[in-house]
Structures are given as structure tokens and as C-alpha cells.
Design a protein around this nucleic acid. Structure first.
Length: 290
DNA sequence: TGCCCCCTGCAG
DNA sequence: CTGCAGGGGGCA
């Protein structure tokens, strides 16, 4: 699920909740979800957060990093300390009357539980078990991200860089936009919608897109990502993307073509088509996108 | 460069 | 039952 806007939203909300907190306990319910030595994180304070593409780094006071990848169904859910009266009733500090979460935690998909010194908790939930949390040193973090491309929100993501990357391959533009080693952060939602905005057929070979179209596409990727961040990201129908406080994003109400096959194109009214490209669902308007 | 796979769950 | 899901690593 989470692409750049969703991970950025989680980062912003989580950093205001748990920066400065000390980890006192880590429960690993699913072994494959945690990679590294869990002992090293106990007693460490959370100092700050960074993000590269879809990967979130939680920096600790001993200079180690918890690197988080949510993959398709990962969630980071923060629960404030349970009040005395609320124990066993789902009553949390700051949520005086009722539990605002529709799902109780830990749930069937809870993989990791971090507890902090003030008794608040952070749940890593992941239905499909594709995601993970890794403990890394600074050097290991740099190494593990050395092949990742430039983040869409990085000032170095220029039109020149974008153009140069497209010129290296004749693969379908949609597939190239999803290549995290070229540009970090775009996923299936925003790749589809950016191509719609730029009126480019997702199958168009990357290297032969005319310069004026490349310019529009480059602009569209940045604008769309920012638009979605302003909407708190996209929570699709399965509700698997949640903010750390359990609320949902709203960018799904602004999808142009993503998951709208058979619905009328917002520009010309022709039905939106769906095809398979690089193993991923691809949505486009054959009349508007050439 | 294109498949298959990792997993779970839901819609058709 | 089959197909599909915000991702991406490994392998021919």
C-alpha cells in the first residue's frame, strides 16, 4: 500500500508522537518481520526520523537505525498509555470516551510491539508479512540504500535527472516510473495517475517520449505526491493504510484513473481501461493518453 | 528484461 | 474456485 505520501504522512505523525521516547520493550510476534539484534534497541531513545522513498528510518540515541519498510500492508499504529480506568476496555489517554480504532490491537496481523518508558506502545501490523523492520548501523543504512534512486521530493529530482533516466531504457514508461533505483517513492497509484495527467500511454517506451511530455510528467509526479501528502495519503477500500492514530487518508477520493476501470474518464468520458504491465494493474484512458 | 515468489484475505 | 491487492528481491 504505502507509497511516498503514505510513508511521509506516517513519518510526520509519528515523529511528533514518539520523538524523545525511550524503548523499554520489544515483542517479536512474527520472526521474519524483524531483522537484526533486538537487544540493541532496548533502552535507546528515539532521536529523529528520515525517509528515502518508501523507506522510513527511525534514528536511535546509540546511532543505530530502525529501518522500516511497510511493503503492501504494513502499518505503524501508536497507542498512548492506557488509563487506569481504561485497562481492558480499549480506553486510551487522550481518547476519553471510546476507542477510536475499529480494530483492536494487538490484532491478528500484529507482528511487532514496541513499548516506551511512558507505557505507550507502537504496533507494527502487516497482514501479508512482506514488510519488515531492520536494525542497522549508519554505515549499514547507507550501504542498504546505496542503489535507491533520488526521492521525488529531493531537490536533486530535477527535470534533467528525470529526462536522463528515461533516456536509458525503452521499457514501458509505467514500469520505469516504478523502478525505485531510478526514482524513489512512486508506486502503482501515483504512477498511473501521473501518466493520466501527462496524457501519456503507460506502454509508451520511456526513451521516446517527447521532451514537452517529459516536462509535464516530471511536474505531475511532484505535484501529485504533494497533493496526496496534503490529503494524508490514500486509504484504499480495504482500509489497510492507516495513520498512526488509526485515522484514514483521503487522497483515494481524488484518484484520476487508479482502480477506476470501466468508470468514465474524468476528461473525455470514455471508459477507463485496465491492463497488466510488469505484473501490476495499469489504468488509463486510451482516448486521452497517447 | 520478464517471470515467479514471498503471504493473507477479499471480491466476483 | 480464480484473480487480484499501495512492493520488490531473486533468478534465468
Amino acid at each position: 500500500m504505502p507509497e511516498l505520501p503514505e510513508v511521509e504522512t506516517v513519518k510526520r505523525l509519528l515523529e511528533q508522537k514518539i520523538t524523545g521516547h525511550t524503548i523499554t520493550k520489544l515483542e517479536i510476534l512474527t520472526a521474519k518481520s524483524f531483522i537484526g539484534d533486538p537487544c540493541g534497541v532496548i533502552g535507546q531513545k528515539i532521536t529523529h526520523f528520515t525517509r528515502l522513498g518508501k523507506q522510513l528510518s527511525i534514528h536511535l540515541s546509540n546511532h543505530q537505525i530502525l529501518l522500516v519498510h511497510l511493503k503492501m500492508t504494513g502499518q505503524l499504529i501508536y497507542l498512548p498509555a492506557v488509563s487506569k480506568e481504561g485497562i481492558g476496555k480499549g480506553l486510551y489517554m487522550g481518547h476519553p470516551t471510546k476507542d477510536m480504532f475499529t480494530t483492536k490491537f494487538p490484532s491478528k496481523s500484529t507482528r511487532l510491539i514496541f513499548t516506551f518508558s511512558n507505557h505507550s506502545t507502537l504496533y507494527f501490523n502487516d497482514q501479508r508479512k512482506f514488510g519488515w523492520v531492520k536494525v542497522l548501523s549508519r554505515d549499514e543504512l547507507v550501504e542498504s540504500q546505496s542503489k535507491v534512486g533520488i526521492d521525488i521530493l529531493d531537490p536533486r529530482y530535477t527535470l534533467q535527472y528525470f529526462t536522463a533516466q528515461l533516456k536509458t531504457t525503452s521499457r514501458p514508461i509505467k514500469v520505469v516510473l516504478l523502478d525505485q533505483n531510478k526514482f524513489a517513492g512512486l508506486g502503482n497509484i501515483y504512477a498511473n495517475d501521473a501518466l493520466f495527467i501527462a496524457k501519456i500511454d503507460p506502454r509508451h517506451p520511456a526513451k521516446s517520449i517527447p521532451a514537452p511530455r517529459i516536462r509535464i510528467l516530471h511536474r505531475a509526479t511532484i505535484d501529485l505526491i504533494n497533493e496526496s501528502i496534503n490529503h494524508g495519503g490514500s486509504t484504499a477500500k480495504d482500509n489497510l493504510y492507516l495513520h498512526p492514530d488509526g485515522t484514514i487518508g483521503s487522497h483515494q477520493y481524488h484518484f484520476r484513473v487508479y482502480q477506476r476501470q470501466k468508470e468514465p474518464c474524468p476528461i473525455c468520458g470514455q471508459p477507463i481501461l485496465r491492463l497488466n504491465l510488469g505484473g501490476r494493474g495499469t489504468f488509463y484512458c486510451s482516448h486521452c493518453q497517447k
